[in-house]
Design a binder for these strands. Structure first.
Lengths: 121, 121
DNA sequence: CAAAACCATGGAGTTGAGTCAACGGTTTTC
DNA sequence: GAAAACCGTTGACTCAACTCCATGGTTTTG
């Protein structure tokens, strides 16, 4: 599909998609018509984009994501310690979720307190 | 306590603390000695700072936090709908945690796959 | 008592993650 | 067959959240 369709279906802007592509998070091919320079994005890009949103919600930076997507499935070419990298990310995400849940709890308490307060004193 | 001690005990830089204070997230008083302009931070600032970290892990912006801390406990002065604001934040944080947990799960699977792979094919 | 360590203020600079504008070309649609 | 809608490329711009630097004072410490 072309970038406009991917934008519509993913809910992201064309600029954001191009930005992600420059960062190596999604990929495209040259497209069939030889007359133009339009690129073709595969259907799976939608899945990838959803995973990117998950990762960002977990606090991952785009640089980390690119590292994960590039280095990790690339059969571990050089002396890159994928296990250590993954272990570190996992610990980070766990800590972040714990903190977020603690915050959610206090939000809920604030909400309950507000609901219990009569409108005028 | 003075800003240096707060920095040491919170693990944040003095600059960050001053930045948070400008944004209205923490407060200080003029301090007792009249000869200098050093400010005095209360013990509770440490708790507040920890809550700020929780909130940030949950994806809250500093502007939202300032809104929460200012508007919400300020007895709802004008026509600000605290309940709607809180409900919106709660929904956002819930969604974020769900996404983060999904990502954590795929990280764990990647980790398991790596562990199961013998070093040389 | 002098050097080292600390403090406040102001303003500039940085980084990550996009976003916008302008250009010239290509398809689609009325 | 034009106008409208789309595309790629480049480069500048924005915004949030810090971070750094310079200046000029104040405490603490050896």
């Amino acid at each position: 599909m072309r970038i406009g369709e991917l934008a519509r279906r993913s809910g992201l802007s064309r600029d954001t998609l191009r930005f992600y592509e420059r960062q190596g998070l999604i990929a495209s091919r040259p497209g069939t018509e030889a007359t133009n320079s339009y690129r073709d994005y595969p259907e799976e890009a939608l899945i990838t984009l959803d995973q990117i949103a998950d990762a960002q919600a977990a606090g991952m930076s785009i640089a980390d994501l690119a590292m994960l997507m590039g280095q990790l499935q690339a059969a571990d070419p050089d002396g890159f310690d994928g296990e250590a990298f993954l272990d570190a990310r996992i610990a980070e995400v766990e800590a972040r979720i714990t903190r977020a849940e603690r915050f959610l709890e206090s939000l809920r308490q604030a909400r309950a307190a507000l609901a219990a307060t009569p409108v005028l004193r």
